[in-house]
Amino acid sequence: MSTVVSDCFTIGSIVATRTCYNEEIEGEVLAFDPQTKMLILKCPSSSGNPKRHDVNIVNLSLVSDVQIKKEVTTVPEPPQSLNLHRLNTRVRNSIENKKRLVTALAACLDPEGQKLFLAITRVIDDVTWVGQNIRVYNEVTITPPYKVENVIGDLDSKPYNYIKKVVEKHWRDQRESSANSSQHQ
C-alpha cells in the first residue's frame, strides 16, 4: 500500500503524504521512527494563524504515497536539553498555587465572592481571604457583596485604582455573560 521513498527522513525536510483516506498532509519533518514507521510533521496551522503550527503524526503503513519535496542535507543541531530543575520548580509552584486557591476558596461560601476572588487571582498573585473579605496586596480590601463600591483602600494609591478597575471589569463581564446566556435561551 505504501510507496515510501526513503527508509529514513531527515529532520527539517519537507514531505508530502497521501493517506488511505485520500487526505494530503505536507509539512516539515520533526521526527521519524523507522521501526514503527511513524512520521511527525509540522504543518501550517489549520486556523490560519502564521505564528502557530499543526503537528501531524502519520503512520506510513497507512499512506498510499510519500514524496520528499525538499531534502535537507545539513545535519540539524541537536535539540536543547530540558532544564529539569526549572521544570520541577514550575510544577511545584503550580501545585502550591492551586492548593492555596483551594484553601482560599474554602474560606468563603459566597459564590459571587469566589468568582471575584478567582478573577483577581488571574492577574494578581497577592490575594487572600481575611474572614469574608478579599485582601489584595495587603492594601486593598473588598467586602461583601464584593461590588465596586465595596473596594476599600487609599483612594489615591495605584493598587486601589487598579483593583477597582479589575472589579469593574469582573462585574461588566458577569453582566455580559448573563445577558448572552439569556439571549440563547
Rank of each mutant, 00 (worst) to 15 (best):
M1H: 12
M1E: 15
M1F: 09
T3P: 08
T3N: 14
T3D: 12
V4Y: 00
V4C: 04
S6E: 12
S6W: 07
C8H: 12
T10D: 09
T10F: 05
I11N: 09
S13D: 03
T19P: 03
T19S: 15
Y21G: 05
N22P: 00
G27A: 03
E28R: 13
E28V: 14
A31M: 11
T36E: 12
K37C: 04
L41A: 02
L41P: 02
K42L: 11
K42M: 13
S45N: 07
S46N: 06
S47I: 01
G48Q: 05
N49M: 00
K51H: 07
K51V: 01
R52L: 10
R52C: 03
H53I: 01
H53N: 15
D54N: 08
V55H: 12
N56S: 14
V58T: 05
S61E: 15
S61A: 04
S61H: 13
V63H: 01
V63S: 03
S64R: 13
V66G: 02
V66F: 01
K70N: 07
E71D: 07
V72Y: 06
P76S: 08
P76T: 09
P78Q: 07
P79I: 06
P79R: 06
P79S: 07
Q80N: 13
S81K: 13
N83A: 08
H85T: 09
R86A: 15
R86Y: 15
T89A: 11
V91F: 01
V91E: 02
R92T: 13
S94C: 12
E96V: 02
E96I: 04
E96N: 13
K98G: 00
K99T: 05
K99V: 06
V102Q: 06
A107R: 13
D110N: 15
D110M: 09
P111W: 04
P111Q: 14
E112R: 14
G113L: 14
K115H: 15
L118R: 10
I124R: 08
D126I: 03
D126W: 03
T128I: 12
W129Y: 10
G131T: 02
G131Y: 06
R135F: 05
N138P: 00
N138H: 03
E139F: 00
V140T: 06
V140L: 02
T141K: 12
I142M: 11
T143C: 08
T143P: 05
P144V: 10
P145M: 05
P145N: 08
V148E: 15
V148C: 10
V148I: 14
N150W: 02
D156F: 09
D156T: 14
S157W: 01
S157C: 09
P159V: 04
Y160T: 08
N161T: 15
N161A: 10
N161S: 14
N161Y: 05
K164W: 01
K164H: 06
V166I: 11
V166F: 03
V167L: 06
W171Y: 08
W171E: 12
R172T: 10
D173E: 11
E176A: 11
S177H: 09
S178A: 04
S182D: 10
Q185N: 08
Q185L: 02
